[in-house]
Amino acid sequence: MQLQKLVYTEDHLQLINRAFLYGDAVWVSFFVRNGQLIMAEESYFFLMASMRKMRMNIPLSYTLEFFQALFEREVLEKGIRNGIIQMMAYRKQEEKPLPKSATAFYFEVEESEDILGIQGDIELDLIKEINVNANLLSNIRVHSAENIYATIYAKENDLDDVILLNPNKKIARSIFGNLLFLQDNVIKIPKQTEGAYISPLMENFVTFVHKNKLADIEEAEIIAFESQKAEEILRISDEKGVHSVSKIRNKTFANNRFTEMVTKWKASFDEHQTN
Score class of each variant (00 low, 15 high):
residue 226 E to S: 13
residue 239 E to A: 14
residue 272 H to F: 15
residue 259 T to R: 11
residue 177 G to C: 02
residue 93 Q to W: 14
residue 240 K to W: 10
residue 29 S to P: 10
residue 151 T to D: 12
residue 261 M to Q: 02
residue 200 P to F: 06
residue 57 N to P: 00
residue 127 I to V: 07
residue 63 T to H: 04
residue 39 M to G: 01
residue 65 E to S: 15
residue 77 E to R: 01
residue 63 T to I: 03
residue 227 S to I: 11
residue 215 A to H: 01
residue 64 L to V: 06
residue 30 F to K: 04
residue 26 V to P: 00
residue 123 E to C: 04
residue 102 A to Y: 00
residue 119 Q to K: 15
residue 191 K to R: 14
residue 29 S to M: 11
residue 176 F to R: 12
residue 236 I to F: 05
residue 153 Y to I: 14
residue 147 N to T: 01
residue 71 F to Q: 05
residue 180 L to F: 07
residue 138 S to N: 00
residue 52 R to A: 06
residue 223 I to F: 15
residue 247 K to I: 02
residue 197 Y to L: 03
residue 193 T to Y: 05
residue 223 I to Y: 15
residue 206 V to S: 07
residue 174 S to W: 10
residue 126 L to N: 13
residue 5 K to D: 08
residue 80 I to E: 01
residue 273 Q to W: 12
residue 27 W to L: 13
residue 114 D to L: 06
residue 181 F to N: 02
residue 37 L to F: 03
residue 25 A to G: 02
residue 67 F to E: 00
residue 149 Y to M: 09
residue 111 E to G: 04
residue 123 E to A: 06
residue 224 A to G: 11
residue 247 K to L: 07
residue 97 P to W: 13
residue 47 L to I: 01
residue 150 A to C: 15
residue 44 Y to V: 02
residue 130 I to F: 11
residue 96 K to D: 06
residue 220 A to I: 04
residue 59 P to T: 11
residue 94 E to V: 10
residue 163 I to G: 05
residue 164 L to W: 04
residue 211 K to W: 01
